[in-house]
Design a protein around this nucleic acid. Sequence first.
DNA 1: ACAGTTCTTCCACTCAGCGGAAGGCCGACG
DNA 2: CGTCGGCCTTCCGCTGAGTGGAAGAACTGT
Lengths: 274, 274
Amino acid sequence: MSGNTGDDGRSVTSRVLGILDAFDIEHPRLTLSDIARRASLSLTTAHRLVGELTEWRALERGEDGRYSIGLRLWEAGLLGPLHTRLREIAMPFLQGLYEATRENVHLAVRDGNEALYVEKLSGHRSVPIVSRTGGRLPLHTTGVGKALLAWETCDHVDQYLAHPLARLTRYSISEPGRLRKDLQRIRSRGYATTQEEMTLGNCSVACPILDAEGRPIAAVGVVVHTVRVEPDRLAPPILAAAKGIADRLAAAGDDPYPGYVHDLDLTKRMRRRS
Amino acid sequence: MSGNTGDDGRSVTSRVLGILDAFDIEHPRLTLSDIARRASLSLTTAHRLVGELTEWRALERGEDGRYSIGLRLWEAGLLGPLHTRLREIAMPFLQGLYEATRENVHLAVRDGNEALYVEKLSGHRSVPIVSRTGGRLPLHTTGVGKALLAWETCDHVDQYLAHPLARLTRYSISEPGRLRKDLQRIRSRGYATTQEEMTLGNCSVACPILDAEGRPIAAVGVVVHTVRVEPDRLAPPILAAAKGIADRLAAAGDDPYPGYVHDLDLTKRMRRRS
DNA sequence: ACAGTTCTTCCACTCAGCGGAAGGCCGACG
DNA sequence: CGTCGGCCTTCCGCTGAGTGGAAGAACTGT
């Protein structure tokens, strides 16, 4: 850009993205000074960039002067394939799973070494749970995570096992050898289970959504309270949902928004008016 | 910025946001040239900015070379209050409504002169519908829209009626007088209905979620096929859900993420490991 | 009254960002 | 099998948009 002093090779774009990076689930609302500090920007620069972002509504300013992620950014994010394609196709199946179980239903993808939760459905009767839509959890302590890992290539598994495995409860599998054995069993059985490996008192059953080449695209899972768990009863509907989603995904090809047919007509109708 | 020629006062930030603006639901996947054209950027500039955005994963590049909205942007958008606060609190109530009706369940807020859909639940048995999470529809042709408008201040209503009212079906209310009367009836009855005003064959029932001052924060609604409609039977559970959400919102105060209690502990536990 | 925040505005310096040009790659058409 | 018209990518010299310091306003708690 320009500037008179201490300019490390950062571009304006990287600064803008750094501002977005300043927000996370533990810091969803920040003051201007917070943002400047967390993004390593001078207050002046933060002030100007945040001002522009706020005008576009990428950020919004609350009554207390603090900033949070804005409406437009939320809206833009929902145009991504994770939402318009994967979630759109999966949703009816997830609802079906919810109706059948009334428990927490999850849809997740693998991103790096974490399970990224694309959708989470839960009602009043479901067990309270740490996952959230847009959240991340370890692969080896969650049902969906283990389902994603088990069908991954050996290289990926090796790479994952090379890092230390977080032990979140006393039941978490933190030894590479035991995890490898568990993944083996999961693959042969067709679905993954966890028993209080993420949270004491909670268990889960999950299975992968595979593409035509057998690679795991995503995983569907259900989390229940330990006393209610019956994997044999839970697995069949989850397997069916995963199969259903996989088939619909394959059928949709690379259509970016499979559920959008006559909406095109609608937008035309709406446009004609204005 | 800088640059040697034709530089209208656009900032780098505005260009970056212009790139995001180039994507919409009808154009979720764009080539670099598409982006440059739609955002009025030179190909060179688009190339550089898109490159930076892709590196951060605000955008992602498909196998065919086209760009779409990336994972990180989706993730960032979900940190906004619409998702972490409103949706988080509303979700169990929406699920309850879905269980009770098995129809399309909507949660929407007003943004400008449109209803912005924050959440949409639908199963296999639900009527196919044009709404989508993150989508926008007119206020006067949708149940949630009318519910939002009916409790709005007179000024807002006047302002809305000043613009022409899109007539999307032959049953859409496009005369300001008739709409005003309808809103009056909605307010006195406590909930809104539509009868094929958005889509032929579909009807809806919706009611507002009001804050302590009686202002409409959001609206919950259900869309059903005309032959199945029984507003008197649908209204009570919807009213109850709206009331429940309103109470929980009021109880949460301005806690940015009311459903997040012991997750803080979890992230600490996860961090300790790495 | 004071020390500590916060946010905002002003300003002169300068390098990051700009777009044109040129070249490579692909598929379509004649 | 050239040629055209799309794409995308890299290179390069010019320059004004972006920079951070300084100064001060506003607000808070002590």
